[in-house]
Design a binder for these strands. Structure first.
Lengths: 224, 224
DNA sequence: TTAAAAATCAGGATTTCCCCTGAGGCTTGC
DNA sequence: GCAAGCCTCAGGGGAAATCCTGATTTTTAA
């Protein structure tokens, strides 16, 4: 990039207030130009095709497509476009997923102006930018993983042992029939158990049951 | 620990100069008492059995036994004794090895007095202490590993935008009917899309689709 | 001991899912 | 223009899931 050219920024966030806040933060910066401001990942993808930005500042949690998903899409079209994810709360899962999808930076929404501009310059120059809180988060995750190798997971006995067994199998994408065969019981019994499980946990259907199982570490997500 | 009792420290380093340097740093601290000062890991283990310290400040690289090895021994006898490793240079291997063997803190030798005392208090209160350089080191390692994961994949857009929209909604536990209503299209269309999605992604049914969506951060697990 | 909870199963009704074939309209790229 | 891909919809059918009521046996807990 020639030094005379401004860094072109695209803002993506479903809250207009946030977008305008960032825009005003960057307003008096001579080297930076905001070329677009859209409220969703879908529109971001379109905007990028219309007018290619250098750096995208994007929220993670948005109405439709997540920032992660949009990043993957955009990077698929043009890997040289830099993406900085901006988020309310930082969570380890999203940091690592973000890095895997190729984001170049990660900022909390309460970052100050200097941090924001530093981040933009850093990614524009081919580097990456993750603030201390995020590095700390990744470290804490590393620490707990290294330290807590063999800790037996305990979970509240909301469900009976049998129900728990059914839950695990159903969440592993087995059909009622397959579960029945695997446990040598009737399909009708499986159905009854399943009804009880959904009742007890306040869930609607099997898909919510899968999410419950993943959330509570009853099954692993990578089992695919 | 009663607040009237001092924190009992054991110093372990094969350089007497270092031990005395640390001792003098902690000399005027009323809450801290140095109960021992030994030049090797072996002697540290003996010293611990004679007179139990609360916190051990130990060098990593020593003549015989390393600080890592000594930590493992000591923690095997009494896991409640806190260990802070002190080192000349930081290296990723030693940080991770240290954490695995249960150290509670990790300091470079050029730490100032305040940092040293902060670290002692932190581990004494059940926490851990790793300075910024070490967290950064771990993060950079994490970053490069995560980023490498992405390089070979480089997968094209497997799904169309519409299919992603369907996928997102289905994975959010909506029924075909609900998805159809939300998008103002026919249930039959939703079914067609869904069939295509399952085909393209090599999935069996809706539960696997949910897991795929979670794994790829298309939906969040905590949306329950 | 007795009551409650858990685990098992059935019949029947209704809905939803999944798959198949086929097809019309639409935009995009060559 | 024309092929290709995408989005839309339909009919039909089999499989599966969901929901209901009701029941028996075993296990657990009060």
């Amino acid at each position: 990039m020639k030094s005379t050219e401004k860094i072109k920024i695209l803002l993506v966030d479903d809250h207009q207030l946030i977008r305008e806040g960032i825009a005003s933060m960057l307003g008096d910066c001579n080297d930076i130009e905001i070329i677009g401001s859209v409220p969703s990942g879908e529109e971001a993808i379109n905007a990028v095709r219309m007018n290619r930005p250098d750096v995208i500042l994007m929220d993670i949690m948005m109405g439709g497509m997540t920032g992660i998903e949009a990043t993957r899409w955009i990077k698929g079209d043009d890997p040289d476009i830099k993406v900085i994810l901006v988020t309310m709360e930082i969570s380890k899962e999203y940091v690592s997923a973000g890095i895997t999808s190729g984001v170049n930076g990660y900022l909390p929404k309460d970052s100050d102006k200097k941090t924001l501009i530093d981040a933009i310059y850093a990614v524009q120059n081919g580097g990456h930018f993750f603030n201390d809180a995020i590095m700390k988060l990744v470290f804490e995750d590393f620490y707990s993983r290294e330290k807590l190798k063999n800790v037996p997971s305990k979970l509240p006995h909301e469900l009976t042992k049998r129900e728990y067994e059914i839950l695990r199998q159903v969440a592993s994408s087995k059909s009622n029939k397959e579960v029945a065969e695997s446990l040598f019981i009737s399909i009708k019994t499986v159905e009854t158990h399943k009804t009880h499980i959904l009742e007890k946990l306040g869930l609607k259907n099997t898909t919510e049951l899968v999410k419950y199982a993943i959330k509570n570490k009853i099954i692993a997500v990578d089992s695919l």
